[in-house]
């Protein structure tokens, strides 16, 4: 019996809901500001200078 066969739809739904929840927690903790501040400056490490 394939474990995933019966419960796959519940698992992906739970994963997506968990993802949305994590995004919410990240927003409350100000993590999107950290991402944005990093993303709007040229990342010298990314381009092999820093």
């Amino acid at each position: 019996m394939d474990f995933w066969k019966g419960c796959r739809q519940y698992v992906w739904t739970a994963g997506a809901v968990l993802g949305a929840l994590f995004l919410g927690i990240g927003a409350v903790q100000g993590q999107f500001d950290v991402i944005w501040k990093k993303a709007i400056m040229i990342c010298l490490e990314c381009i092999g200078i820093g």
Partner: peptide, 23 residues
Amino acid sequence: ALLNQRGFQVPFAALGFFFLFGS
């Protein structure tokens, strides 16, 4: 970028994108 911060904080925002896109 989240892991590069001083101290440790669970990178919820990045994990959120992973779980959403991945699921």
